[in-house]
Design a protein around this nucleic acid. Structure first.
Lengths: 128, 128
DNA sequence: ATTTTTATGTCAGAAAACATAACATCTGTT
DNA sequence: AACAGATGTTATGTTTTCTGACATAAAAAT
């Protein structure tokens, strides 16, 4: 009878997002503070999250498990959101930074293998 | 990247459901009081609604617009949830009651024609 | 034509959920 | 050892939601 939720619609309070992601409120707010997500706000200033936000949070968890730090994850997202002019100028992100990022990632190559047991990516667990 | 939300999962606070359905909290609680919906509760007793609940509420709105009353809508839902043994015994719902229901509905046949402007059914508006 | 019932509005008081901010702690890096 | 990053914890204030009571307009019953 119904379809796909408009994934950007701010529907979920932080308590639900905590359950869905198994993150603490502290963590979620910290990631927002560092611009990894930007949940909407109610008139009364309460955060309201979209399904996209939840997806992003699950990704962040993954990246952190893989040894990346917040700065690294941030850079990855900044790159994504800037397909810009077909890979125009290298922008203001130095090669040094990118190399460091890559290095960081390689260092931790022996990854923990999904402690949750299963994680087929994103929100698939909650959908059908 | 993602799919269909597990429609029975209690995800939404009443404020969001109000927006989604354009019902007041009073109305939503009243319909619950009359067993048309049964939203989950948090530990702290706050209502949490599933997408199915939202669908149901939109249906209720429609039925009310069509002149049905709460009792009538309730009966319809009770019938639905009782496909039971392939239409076993007529149960405890008398023919008289059913005739009354039908009559009720016919009386109001000249329906208002969707004041909202558009309503293609269910949550489709919020999905893609 | 009254009286009753329905569906909803509104208000009050209490409790839950959430907000921000500060300080604490652990871990890995310099 | 000192520091920075990520998160835990606690305190305090605001928003949201709860239940319950009373009010009311429209519909139904008498």
């Amino acid at each position: 009878m119904t379809n796909r939720v408009r994934r950007t619609m701010p529907l979920l309070p932080i308590s639900i997002v905590m359950q869905l992601t198994e993150l603490t409120a502290r963590q979620i707010r910290y990631y927002e503070e560092h611009k990894l997500i930007s949940p909407a706000r109610t008139e009364g200033n309460k955060r309201m999250f979209s399904l996209n936000d939840v997806d992003t949070l699950l990704e962040i968890k993954d990246y952190l498990d893989q040894g990346l730090n917040i700065a690294g994850i941030k850079k990855i997202y900044d790159l994504r959101e800037t397909p810009q002019n077909e890979k125009a100028e290298p922008k203001n992100l130095s090669d040094a930074e990118l190399r460091k990022l890559l290095h960081e990632e390689l260092k931790h190559q022996a990854r923990p293998l999904e402690k949750g047991g299963f994680r087929q990516g994103g929100l698939s667990r909650f959908f059908n």
